[in-house]
Measured scan of single mutants.
Amino acid sequence: SDIKVHVGDITVELHNVSEEFARLVEEALRLGLNEEQAKEWAHKALH
C-alpha cells in the first residue's frame, strides 16, 4: 500500500510497501539517515 512517513519536517511517500517496511524507514529517518539511505536500510533489514 501507499504510506506517508513523517519524521520531524521530513515527509517520505512510499508506494506499494508493507507496513513493516514503512516502519523501518521511519526508524532509519529517526536515526538520522536521509530518505535514500533509509529506504536502502529498510530493504536490507527485510532480506
Rank of each mutant, 00 (worst) to 15 (best):
S1V: 15
S1N: 14
S1F: 14
S1W: 03
S1P: 11
S1T: 14
S1G: 13
S1M: 15
S1D: 10
D2M: 15
D2K: 14
D2R: 12
D2N: 15
D2W: 03
D2C: 03
D2F: 11
D2E: 12
D2P: 14
I3L: 09
I3P: 06
I3A: 07
I3D: 06
I3W: 04
I3F: 13
I3K: 09
I3R: 11
I3G: 05
I3Q: 10
I3V: 13
I3M: 10
K4V: 15
K4A: 13
K4F: 04
K4L: 11
K4T: 15
K4W: 02
K4G: 09
K4M: 11
K4S: 13
K4E: 10
K4I: 15
V5E: 06
V5Q: 06
V5Y: 01
V5A: 05
V5R: 04
V5F: 03
V5C: 04
V5M: 06
V5H: 08
V5K: 06
V5W: 01
V5D: 06
V5N: 06
H6A: 15
H6Q: 14
H6T: 15
H6R: 15
H6W: 01
H6G: 10
H6L: 06
H6I: 15
H6E: 14
V7A: 09
V7D: 07
V7Q: 07
V7F: 14
V7C: 03
V7T: 07
G8H: 08
G8F: 01
G8P: 07
G8I: 04
G8K: 06
G8L: 03
G8Y: 00
G8A: 06
G8E: 09
D9G: 15
D9L: 11
D9N: 14
D9F: 04
D9C: 08
D9M: 11
D9T: 12
D9H: 12
D9R: 05
D9K: 10
I10G: 05
I10Q: 09
I10R: 08
I10P: 05
I10H: 09
I10V: 14
I10N: 07
I10L: 14
T11D: 09
T11P: 03
T11S: 11
T11G: 03
T11H: 10
T11L: 12
V12K: 04
V12R: 03
V12M: 06
V12A: 06
V12G: 05
V12L: 06
V12E: 05
V12N: 05
V12F: 01
V12T: 06
V12Q: 04
V12H: 08
E13F: 01
E13R: 07
E13N: 14
E13Q: 13
E13A: 09
E13H: 11
E13D: 13
E13K: 10
E13W: 01
E13Y: 02
E13P: 04
L14P: 06
L14T: 05
L14Q: 04
L14M: 08
L14N: 05
L14S: 05
L14V: 06
L14W: 02
L14H: 07
L14K: 05
H15F: 04
H15T: 11
H15Y: 02
H15M: 08
H15K: 13
H15W: 02
H15D: 05
H15Q: 10
N16P: 07
N16I: 04
N16R: 04
N16K: 07
N16L: 04
N16E: 08
N16V: 05
N16D: 11
V17Y: 07
V17Q: 06
V17W: 08
V17K: 06
V17D: 07
V17C: 06
V17N: 05
V17M: 08
V17E: 07
V17G: 04
V17R: 05
S18N: 09
S18W: 04
S18I: 05
S18R: 08
S18E: 07
S18L: 07
S18A: 08
S18Q: 06
E19Y: 09
E19F: 10
E19A: 13
E19I: 13
E19D: 13
E19M: 13
E19T: 12
E19K: 11
E19W: 10
E20N: 09
E20D: 13
E20V: 11
E20Q: 14
E20P: 04
E20W: 09
E20L: 13
E20K: 10
E20I: 12
E20H: 12
F21T: 01
F21L: 03
F21S: 00
F21E: 02
F21R: 00
F21V: 02
F21D: 00
F21H: 02
F21W: 07
A22L: 06
A22C: 03
A22V: 08
A22E: 04
R23T: 07
R23C: 05
R23G: 05
R23M: 11
R23P: 00
R23I: 08
R23N: 08
R23A: 11
L24Q: 03
L24I: 03
L24C: 02
L24V: 02
L24R: 04
L24S: 02
L24H: 04
L24E: 01
L24W: 07
L24M: 08
L24Y: 11
L24N: 02
V25C: 02
V25P: 00
V25R: 01
V25Q: 01
V25T: 02
V25K: 02
V25G: 00
V25M: 05
V25A: 01
V25S: 00
V25L: 05
E26V: 10
E26I: 10
E26S: 09
E26C: 09
E26L: 11
E26T: 10
E26A: 13
E26Q: 10
E26D: 07
E26F: 08
E26N: 06
E27V: 12
E27P: 00
E27A: 14
E27I: 14
E27C: 08
E27F: 14
E27W: 10
E27R: 10
E27H: 14
A28W: 02
A28K: 01
A28M: 04
A28D: 00
A28N: 02
A28R: 01
A28E: 00
A28Y: 09
A28G: 14
A28C: 03
A28I: 01
L29D: 00
L29I: 08
L29K: 04
L29H: 02
L29W: 01
L29S: 02
R30Y: 09
R30M: 12
R30D: 03
R30F: 08
R30H: 12
R30W: 11
R30K: 15
R30I: 10
R30V: 07
R30L: 13
R30A: 11
R30G: 10
L31G: 08
L31P: 00
L31Y: 09
L31V: 05
L31A: 14
L31E: 07
L31D: 07
L31C: 11
L31N: 12
L31Q: 13
L31I: 10
G32N: 03
G32M: 01
G32W: 00
G32I: 00
G32S: 01
G32V: 00
G32L: 01
G32H: 02
G32F: 01
G32Y: 01
G32R: 01
L33G: 01
L33E: 01
L33H: 06
L33C: 05
L33I: 03
L33D: 01
L33Q: 03
L33N: 02
L33Y: 14
N34M: 03
N34E: 05
N34C: 02
N34G: 10
N34R: 03
N34Y: 02
N34A: 06
N34I: 02
N34Q: 04
N34W: 02
E35L: 15
E35Y: 10
E35W: 09
E35P: 10
E35C: 04
E35R: 04
E35N: 03
E36T: 12
E36C: 09
E36P: 05
E36V: 12
E36R: 11
E36K: 12
E36H: 12
E36M: 13
E36Q: 14
E36S: 11
E36W: 08
Q37L: 09
Q37N: 07
Q37A: 13
Q37D: 14
Q37Y: 03
Q37H: 06
Q37T: 04
Q37S: 07
A38M: 01
A38T: 00
A38D: 00
A38R: 00
A38Q: 00
A38P: 00
A38L: 01
A38W: 01
A38K: 00
A38G: 01
K39C: 04
K39P: 05
K39T: 04
K39V: 12
K39L: 15
K39E: 06
K39N: 04
K39I: 15
K39F: 13
E40V: 08
E40W: 07
E40Y: 09
E40R: 10
E40T: 04
E40M: 09
E40S: 08
E40G: 03
E40I: 07
E40A: 11
W41Y: 15
W41G: 04
W41E: 11
W41T: 10
W41P: 00
W41S: 13
W41R: 15
W41K: 13
W41L: 12
W41H: 14
W41M: 11
W41C: 07
A42R: 00
A42Y: 01
A42F: 01
A42H: 00
A42W: 02
A42D: 00
A42C: 02
H43T: 13
H43M: 11
H43G: 07
H43C: 12
H43D: 14
H43F: 11
H43Q: 12
H43A: 12
H43R: 12
H43N: 10
K44H: 09
K44Y: 08
K44C: 10
K44D: 14
K44N: 15
K44F: 07
K44A: 15
K44G: 11
A45L: 11
A45G: 05
A45P: 00
A45W: 11
A45E: 14
A45H: 15
A45I: 15
A45R: 12
A45M: 15
A45N: 13
A45Y: 14
L46E: 04
L46H: 04
L46Y: 09
L46Q: 07
L46M: 14
L46R: 03
L46G: 03
L46K: 04
L46A: 07
H47S: 14
H47F: 03
H47Y: 03
H47T: 11
H47V: 12
H47A: 13
H47L: 13
H47W: 02
H47K: 13
H47R: 10
H47Q: 13
